[in-house]
Design a binder for these strands. Sequence first.
DNA 1: TAGATTGTTAATCGATTAACAATC
DNA 2: TAGATTGTTAATCGATTAACAATC
Lengths: 212, 212
Amino acid sequence: VPERISEAVIRRLPRYYRQLGALEQEGVSRISSLELSERMNITASQIRQDLSRFGGFGQQGYGYNVSALRRHIAEILGLDRKYSVILVGAGNIGQALSNYAGFAAEGYVIAALFDADPSLSGGKAGAAPVLGMDELEGFIEANRVDIAVIAVPAGAAGQAAERLIKAGVRAIWNFAPVDIVIDGAVVENAQLTDGLMSLTYRLGELMAKKPT
Amino acid sequence: VPERISEAVIRRLPRYYRQLGALEQEGVSRISSLELSERMNITASQIRQDLSRFGGFGQQGYGYNVSALRRHIAEILGLDRKYSVILVGAGNIGQALSNYAGFAAEGYVIAALFDADPSLSGGKAGAAPVLGMDELEGFIEANRVDIAVIAVPAGAAGQAAERLIKAGVRAIWNFAPVDIVIDGAVVENAQLTDGLMSLTYRLGELMAKKPT
DNA sequence: TAGATTGTTAATCGATTAACAATC
DNA sequence: TAGATTGTTAATCGATTAACAATC
């Protein structure tokens, strides 16, 4: 019964993957759901429940093999292959993302950036070329593009998304402070200010409880 | 009965706030939960449920006043005042965040950046000074700091968090790919790669369903 | 007033936790 | 074998949705 994996589980998978990588680095080769739960603020029960959805990766009386489990999760997440990524918007965030080594390490290869500002086009950001927005569709047609990042101002984000979808892109990682609602593609919203605001809310709660 | 607001609701508040800002800009002065639901991919029922937790902001037969509701939510989120923010780590992400105009617009003022690399300290990032890591505790003592952003490599993040908490910081926004688990402070994890990986997972699902 | 739409209560659905038999 | 720990089923908890009386 290939039951649909819930969003909540999907969001925990990268955390497992990261934690297992750290354990591997520490030279830990086996771990129980209980030990893992202590490191992650997740109950042992939930860890077992989560992992068992994808198969019996553990062994009774023993626990889980760290490296093997990490490889399994990598495969589940689709990290066993490379992804070609383009960035629409070569401003602050676009530049920072293109220089972030963490992505390349997991197989995300930045193929190009696009920007409306003609003074940027022709340049480079990291190893990738910066092209003009008019070259977007042509580039997508000529090159495989798996994921597009939207890193343009709010006002330009909707149109950028439409162009990307129309050109055939099926995955969008959106940093613009706008909700992008489309179907036929997957969208991950990464609104930085949203996170900052919920942090602020919780800070307010904390101060109300224990003021100082 | 001042019931505890769930995490799920808190995460929707910034979205309401943003959407109401957009509506205000479009010149829309009133909106019903049904209309709002269509713009946001949230059910009308949930919107009413969420908003009513904080008070009766709407009016039967009319809906919600856009500007008034936006102001209410701003107040709930604590956006009616300024926050002093420091960034630990002045690399890619630190620099990009310090140049991002969206934060200043909501009252988040970057007071300083700190970096372990001595060649950076003494410089500026946007309007804020870049200081050495040895100046961290002294700065926090001498200046009010509401929120600290961790934008250092994974290996340095844990120690940075400890120093910040010890120095009295009560809110941490963590960009390092490490789970920071502490109590007595609120932590918002903003692991960029995690978002990218769940996007990749969902892309895999999409392709499996509708291959092309 | 009649129509519209909220705020709220109750019903449903889904996710988390607890418990334990299976088994390495 | 005895002990440990999984995988899974059942119980609980919480969040979402539906429905409708209250009311502008």
